[in-house]
Design a binder for these strands. Structure first.
Lengths: 164, 164
DNA sequence: CGATATTAGTTACAGATGAAACTGATTACC
DNA sequence: GGTAATCAGTTTCATCTGTAACTAATATCG
């Protein structure tokens, strides 16, 4: 695809943004995410963080706020704000964990389950339309490749971000 | 990978976030982008929009602000702000197009080229490390799949976002 | 030619974001 | 038991973001 250059130092390769993987992922992901966000906002008044919280609480709830954060890769600030809004709208319910009173116990309310039941098919439909251009083999490959990239990002990007 | 469900209506599939393509793309892309953004910011004081502007001006400049926007998929507001900061730092130069005085003509300054020459190998290195876990065939497949998804997103997401 | 529409780019505003500071509760450990 | 360290979650602050409104210049079309 491209010769592995590993920091040749001088201004070697021209670096075309169009072929730069992080850039391409960012553009694609943003396009998809903002389009979906618009749909969720217009039809259900939900932001992406709120939608994510509902999805994991529906599937794995009840969970603490930390539990939600862990399953959505959102930081605790984002989760806290999403939870706050969902509580206002009574789509989730919050109790305090009696065993550890720092922790809260979050679960979907009946209305929350209703919203989930309404959003889920829409989400799945968006996904299936989006990937309708891919063959079964493509989808399998993409799945595998994304997993590989995930791990790759995990292993070296974190340390790259904190090294000199 | 998963049966194509196309809006079955009722609360059929459980919808696991972990397997939801838009979510996975978003998490992966955000992780990569924020890690890279940190590196650029710490080492060069550049934000992602600034870096993108430099990259396309180095490769295709001189360009108008609109030209930069078109080649980076950033909207004109973002470009305007990035350009403003780069002008302050004298990494780019701006002239007015005499043929159409609404237009500006942007080009990298010598210092801008220096920064580009410093950043580009770093960027390429990040990319090659990131995709080092992929085989040549994987990379080719990913390239093709991303193009397909791009077109797929373009064709139906836009209208999905504006339909009832 | 002159009124109107369109385009390039900037500014104002409102909301989202993450880092860091903070509060209250729990654990570790002497 | 009591102090220090840690943890769950919230709030603050400074920054980034997109939408919409705006300015200035050009194009359109009578």
């Amino acid at each position: 695809m491209k010769p592995t250059s590993h920091a040749t130092g001088s201004a070697a390769e021209p670096l075309d943004l169009e072929t730069f993987l992080p850039y391409r992922l960012s553009v694609l992901s943003n396009r998809i995410s903002t389009a979906i966000a618009r749909v969720y906002a217009r039809r259900f008044g939900l932001s992406i963080p709120e939608w994510r919280a509902i999805a994991v609480l529906g599937r794995f709830g009840p969970l603490s706020a930390n539990g939600v954060a862990g399953r959505t890769y959102m930081d605790k600030v984002r989760v806290s704000r999403a939870v706050g809004r969902l509580l206002e709208r009574r789509l989730i319910e919050r109790a305090t964990d009696t065993a550890d009173r720092r922790r809260s116990i979050l679960r979907l309310s009946p209305e929350g389950f209703e919203i989930l039941a309404a959003v889920a098919p829409l989400a799945l439909d968006i996904e299936s339309r989006l990937s309708a251009v891919l063959s079964a083999k493509d989808r399998a490959n993409l799945d595998r490749i994304l997993k590989l990239l995930d791990r790759s990002a995990e292993t070296f990007l974190e340390k790259a971000a904190s090294s000199p």
